[in-house]
Amino acid sequence: MKFSILVNEGPYTHQASDTAYQFTKAVLAKGHEVFRVFFYHDGVNNATRLTTPPQDDRNIVNRWSKLAEEHNLDMVVCVAAAQRRGIVDEGEMKRNGKDATNLAAGFRISGLGQLVEAGIQSDRLVVFGD
């Protein structure tokens, strides 16, 4: 079965991102396909590689990047939500005249249409948020 996952909260403040990660891992472990993980609202903050949690804490951002690498996941960050919250890739940096990028490995920035497409293409779309 084809799953997509929507993450509406950032890391650390809410458990939503942790649960979404554990759920995504379990989906893959069960042999299902993950069509896309979409990050919206404060969920876009899961995609900043500048995150530096204490060493004895989980690194939520790296964890997503690693999962994406291992399973070739399509992890999409909503462009409008990212612009509001300062999540920047090379293209956005140039377009908006910013002086840095912070998008972590495995994520890409794209439009909300990608979320709607995930709803259309997937058998199940599961929402995690607050």
């Binding site: 799953f3 759920f23 891992k25 379990a26 472990a29 058998d123 199940r124």
Partner: peptide
């Protein structure tokens, strides 16, 4: 249920 059971329920 564990996370795997969560997935089964969604399916």
């Amino acid at each position: 249920v564990d996370y795997g059971g969560f997935v089964d329920l969604v399916a």
